[in-house]
Design a protein around this nucleic acid. Structure first.
Length: 849
DNA sequence: ATGTTGCATGGTC
DNA sequence: GGACCATGCAACA
C-alpha cells in the first residue's frame, strides 16, 4: 500500500520497481517505495546526499559538522533542532541527550526548557491522521523512551535497528536521573492546569514512558512524562496528538507559542478539557516565551523530593516592581493564569492555599480585574510570601504543579548580581547550581543594577487550590524554551523593572561609552588613498563618511606638507611621545613607536631628537586634542550634545558661507588632522580666514547641499528632542522673543570673515554662553531680521510649516549667530573645546591669535 | 493619614 | 491596531 505504482518513489529515479524497498514515511503514512538503488541509498543514509545535493536546506550539525538535508522529508528524522539555533545530527543528539552531566550543563541543557538537542516528535498515534502527518514531515524526529516508538512517526526506516534501543536506553537513563516531569497537557483548550474535576487523562501513560515533544522547528523543546499516574496511554496520546493537526507537539501550551498553528481538536483530552471551557478564550493561550518555565532538574528534584511525584512546570514570571512591592499583588500573565489556574468567573476569584516546601502555608487570592475588555489576573496577598522568600523585583517565580498531589508549586529564582552580560549562563548555574539558560542570566545582568546583591537562593512554595480539593489531574507538563529568543526577551523585561516605560532604554552611560568608542575608532581611521571622507556630525561627534574606499584603521597621524612641498604625516611615538615624520603613503599600525620608523633611521629610536619644533607642534596638536577633549565632554555631560550638534552644523554653515571649495592645502588638513592634503571634505575645504568667494543662498554646490541636508536633519532631530522634553512651547516662546533681537546674518558673515577658518570642531560651542555674553547680546539686538542671511537653512519643504521664520528658524539663526560670535572669540584657539566644557559660557578666554 | 481596592492609563509587544 | 501588563491613582476603608 505504500505505493500504488511500481515506479521508484524517488522523483529523480522513477525506475520501475518490482520489489520496492521501504523508504521514508510519507505524509500519508505510507512508505515511499524505492528501487534497490534508491532504497539502499536511503538505508545508508545517503539518499539526500545522492539525490538532493544541489537542493537547498542543507545544514551542518553543530557538533560534528555533518551535513544534513534539513529541508527534506527524507532526512527529517536524522537531526534535531537545537534551542540555541542550529541543528544536531541524531547521533550527536543521542550522545548529548540524557547524559546527566550534559543535562546539568548550565549552558547547553535544561531538561525542562528543552534547550538540549533532543529531538522530539509527536506521539505514535499522532500519525493516525494524514493531516497531522502532513505536518509531521516538517518536524524533527520524535524521540520516545518507551522503545515502542512508532517508527513511522519518527520517519525511521523500517530497517533501523539500534536507534530505538538507544532511545530507550537514553530514556531509561533520563528517568533514573530523577527527571520526572509531567506531561504537557492541555494546552490546547487553554486550561492545562488545574482541572481538578477531570481525571488525569492528559498523562501519558505506560511504564516509564517518556515523550519528547517539540512543536516548533525554530525552538525545539521537549516534554518528559512519567506515566505513573496515567492510564490512558495510546489513547491519550491519540487525543493529545490529534488535537493539534498542524503541530507535532500538542502538548505544551508553549508549543503553540513556538509557532504552532495548532487548532484544537475536539477529541480526547482536549475535549475533556473543553468541558470546562471558559468563555474568555482559554482555548488560545500562546504563552509568551518569557513565561516559559525554566526549572532545572535540580529544582525538579527539590520539588519532588524523594517521592515519585511528577513535576509539571507551568510557567514563570519575573517579578516586576509592582509585583514585588508592598501592594502585595502579583500580576499573573493572563494566558498563564487562564491556562493553569482554576477558572474564575467572579472578579473576587478563588483562594489559593499556599505552602512552602517546609510545610508553611500561605493563602493567596487568585482573582482578576476587568481590564480593557479583558482581564487582568492577580495573586493577592503575596507580600508575606514574597518577604518570606526574600523576593524582589527581578527575581523569578516559577509555578509548577506536583502530581499526583495536585499542588501548585511556586518556586523562586533569585536574580543574580554576579552576572555580567558576557557571563550569561554561567551566572545561571550559580543561581541554582544547575544550568538554567542564558536568559536568566541576562536578566540577572540587568537586574544587577537595580537589585541588591543577593546570594543565590531558591525556594519553593506549593500552592493548593483550595476550592478544588480534588487537585488537578496529573496532566500536563510543558516544557519549552528557545534560548535566544528567551535571552532577548529577558533583556527587555529586565529593563522594565523599577520604572515604567523604560524598556529598551539605553543607559546614558552606555550611550556615552558607545560614543566614545566610536570616536576612538574614528581616531584610528585614516582616509583611504583613493578619496577623502566627508564629515558628519551626529550627536556631537564627528563621523567621517567614506563614500568610495573604506577607511584605513591605523594610528592617527597628522597629514602635513613638509618644507619641500611633499606630503608627509606626523605620527607620535607611543612610547616617547615624540613626533616623527613619515611618508604620506605610510599606513601605520595602531601602535607605533620610534622603532617602527623605518623611513628615518636617524629617528628610529626614542632617544633621537624630535624634528618638530615647539611652534610646529603648537600648530598641529590643538586639533588632535580636540578629539579627546570632545570625548571627555561627552562623558561629562550628555546634555551638551544637543546644543553641540546644532552648533556643529552651524559651524558647517559658517563654512558654507565662507567660500567655495578651495584647493587643498596643508593648511586645510591641519584643521582636520585626520585628513590629508587634497581632502575635499567639508572641513578641509574651508578657507583659512574668511577668504574665498561667498556662497549665495541659491547656491547648489555640493557643499551647500551637504550643509543644507545636514542642517535639515539636525533641525528634525532637534525638533523631536524639544518636543520630547515638552519644552517646545517654551522654546518657541523664547525664540519669538529673541527673534527681534537677531541681527542680520550679514553680521554673521562679517564675524566669520574676521574669524578666519572655521572648523567643525568649533561647533561644540555652547550657545548659552553666547547668550550670556553682554556684547553678544548687543550685537544681536542690532539685527532686524533673521532671514537676511545668504542661505535659508530652514528651507525644508517637509518642515516649512513647523519652521516658519517666526519660530524655530529664528532660533537656529540665533544659534548660528552665537556660534559665529563664539568662534570669533575663539578662532585659532586650540582650547576652544575646553572652554566649552567649562560651561562658563563666556568663551572669552584663551585668545591666542 | 495610611492602607487597600478597583480601575484606568499608557508603554510595549 | 489590538492585547497584554506594569503602574498610577482615585475612591474607599
Amino acid at each position: 500500500m505504500s505505493s500504488s505504482s511500481n515506479v521508484c518513489f524517488n522523483s529523480n529515479c522513477k525506475e520501475l520497481v518490482e520489489r520496492p524497498k521501504k523508504g521514508w514515511r510519507r505524509r500519508t503514512g505510507e512508505f515511499a517505495d524505492l528501487c534497490d538503488r534508491c532504497g539502499s541509498a536511503y538505508d545508508d543514509g545517503k539518499f539526500c546526499e545522492t539525490f538532493h545535493l544541489s537542493s537547498s536546506g542543507w545544514r551542518s550539525c553543530e557538533s560534528c559538522g555533518k551535513q544534513i538535508h534539513c529541508g527534506c522529508i527524507v532526512s527529517f528524522h536524522t537531526f534535531v533542532l537545537l534551542d540555541a539555533g542550529g541543528i544536531e545530527c541524531i547521533s550527536c543528539a543521542r550522545k548529548s541527550f540524557i547524559l546527566p552531566e550534559r543535562i546539568k550543563d548550565v549552558n547547553n541543557w535544561n531538561p525542562i526548557a528543552g534547550s538540549g538537542p533532543v529531538p522530539w516528535r509527536q506521539a505514535p498515534s499522532l500519525f493516525n491522521g494524514s493531516a497531522i502527518q502532513n505536518e509531521l514531515q516538517h518536524k524533527p524526529p520524535f524521540l520516545d523512551a518507551t522503545g515502542s516508538i512508532d517508527r513511522l512517526s519518527l520517519g525511521e526506516r523500517p530497517s533501523a535497528s539500534s536507534s530505538d534501543n538507544n532511545r530507550k536506553d537514553s530514556c531509561e537513563k533520563l528517568m533514573n536521573g530523577n527527571l520526572k516531569i509531567g506531561v504537557p497537557g492541555t494546552l490546547e483548550n487553554g486550561y492545562a492546569g488545574l482541572n481538578h474535576e477531570e481525571p488525569p487523562k492528559s498523562c501519558l501513560s505506560g511504564p516509564r514512558q517518556l515523550s519528547y515533544a517539540n512543536n516548533d522547528l525554530s525552538a525545539p523543546s521537549f516534554c518528559l512524562t512519567v506515566g505513573s499516574a496515567c492510564k490512558n496511554e495510546p489513547t491519550d496520546y491519540s487525543k493529545v496528538s490529534v488535537s493539534v493537526p498542524q503541530q507535532t507537539t500538542l502538548s505544551t501550551p508553549l508549543g503553540k507559542q513556538l509557532g504552532g498553528h495548532a487548532t484544537v481538536d475536539s477529541s480526547g483530552e482536549t475535549q475533556v478539557r473543553n468541558s470546562k471551557t471558559r468563555g474568555d478564550g482559554r482555548g488560545k493561550h500562546h504563552l509568551l516565551p518569557r513565561y516559559w518555565p525554566r526549572i532545572t532538574d535540580q529544582e525538579l528534584q527539590q520539588l519532588s523530593g524523594d517521592s515519585n511525584s511528577v513535576i509539571t512546570p507551568l510557567f514563570e514570571k519575573m517579578l516586576s516592581a509592582s509585583d514585588a512591592g508592598k501592594i502585595g499583588r502579583l500580576v499573573l500573565p493572563k494566558k498563564c493564569a487562564e491556562a493553569y489556574f482554576p477558572p474564575i468567573s467572579n472578579p473576587e476569584g478563588l483562594p489559593l492555599k499556599m505552602q512552602d516546601l517546609k510545610g508553611k502555608e500561605w493563602m493567596f487570592q487568585f482573582r482578576f480585574w476587568p481590564n480593557n475588555n479583558s482581564r487582568m489576573y492577580v495573586l493577592e496577598g503575596v507580600t508575606p510570601c514574597m518577604q518570606s522568600m526574600q523576593l524582589q523585583a527581578g527575581d523569578i517565580v516559577t509555578f509548577s504543579r506536583i502530581e499526583p498531589e495536585g499542588k501548585l508549586v511556586m518556586g523562586c529564582r533569585k536574580a543574580s548580581t554576579t552576572v555580567t552580560a558576557d557571563q550569561g549562563s554561567e551566572a545561571c548555574s550559580n543561581n541554582n547550581g544547575v544550568a538554567t539558560n542564558g536568559n536568566v542570566s541576562t536578566k540577572s545582568t540587568k537586574f544587577s543594577e537595580e537589585v541588591p546583591a543577593n546570594t543565590t537562593k531558591k525556594g519553593f512554595l506549593s500552592i493548593t487550590h483550595v476550592a478544588a480539593a480534588d487537585s488537578t489531574s496529573a496532566d500536563d507538563l510543558v516544557k519549552e524554551s528557545s534560548g535566544n529568543n528567551r535571552t532577548i526577551r529577558c533583556k527587555r523585561k529586565g529593563s522594565t523593572l523599577g520604572s515604567k516605560s523604560k524598556r529598551l532604554r539605553i543607559d546614558n552611560e552606555d550611550l556615552v561609552e558607545l560614543k566614545v568608542t566610536v570616536v576612538q575608532a574614528q581616531g584610528l581611521m585614516r582616509p583611504p588613498s583613493s578619496g577623502a571622507p566627508t564629515v558628519i556630525v551626529i550627536e556631537g561627534c564627528e563621523f567621517e563618511e567614506y563614500v568610495q574606499d573604506a577607511p584605513i584603521i591605523g594610528r592617527p597621524t597628522i597629514p602635513h606638507m613638509d618644507h619641500l612641498g611633499e606630503k608627509i604625516q606626523w605620527v607620535q611615538c607611543e612610547d616617547c611621545f615624540k613626533w616623527r615624520k613619515v611618508p604620506d603613503s605610510a599606513v601605520l599600525p595602531s601602535r607605533w613607536t620610534c622603532s617602527d620608523n623605518s623611513w628615518d633611521p636617524e629617528r628610529s629610536a626614542c632617544s633621537a631628537v624630535q624634528e618638530l619644533t615647539a611652534d610646529h607642534l603648537r600648530d598641529l596638536l590643538p586639533h588632535i586634542n580636540k578629539a579627546s577633549k570632545k570625548m571627555k565632554a561627552s562623558k561629562q555631560e550628555m546634555d551638551l550634545v544637543e546644543p553641540l550638534d546644532g552648533l556643529d552644523a552651524l559651524a558647517n554653515l559658517a563654512i558654507l558661507e565662507e567660500g567655495e571649495i578651495l584647493p587643498a592645502s596643508s593648511q586645510a588638513t591641519t584643521k582636520h588632522p585626520r585628513h590629508r592634503p587634497g581632502c575635499t571634505c567639508i572641513v578641509c575645504i574651508q578657507p583659512p580666514s574668511g577668504k574665498g568667494p561667498k556662497h549665495q543662498q541659491s547656491c547648489d554646490c555640493n557643499v551647500c547641499k551637504s550643509v543644507k541636508r545636514r542642517f535639515k536633519t539636525l533641525m528634525l532631530k532637534r525638533e523631536k528632542k524639544l518636543s520630547e522634553k515638552e519644552a517646545e512651547a517654551a522654546c518657541q516662546k523664547l525664540q519669538l522673543q529673541l527673534a527681534g533681537q537677531l541681527f542680520d546674518s550679514d553680521d554673521i558673515q562679517e564675524s566669520i570673515d574676521d574669524a578666519g577658518h572655521f572648523s567643525p570642531q568649533h561647533g561644540e560651542l555652547n550657545n548659552e554662553g553666547s547668550v550670556d555674553d553682554p556684547n553678544h547680546l548687543n550685537e544681536k539686538k542690532s539685527s532686524a531680521s533673521p532671514f537676511k542671511g545668504e542661505i535659508d537653512l530652514n528651507a525644508k519643504p517637509e518642515r516649512d510649516d513647523e519652521l516658519s521664520p517666526g519660530s524655530d528658524s529664528g532660533s537656529m539663526m540665533r544659534i548660528l549667530q552665537d556660534t559665529a560670535e563664539q568662534y570669533v572669540r575663539h578662532c585659532g584657539n586650540g582650547s576652544f573645546v575646553s572652554n566649552q566644557k567649562s560651561g562658563d559660557g563666556t568663551g572669552e578666554t584663551n585668545k591666542s591669535e
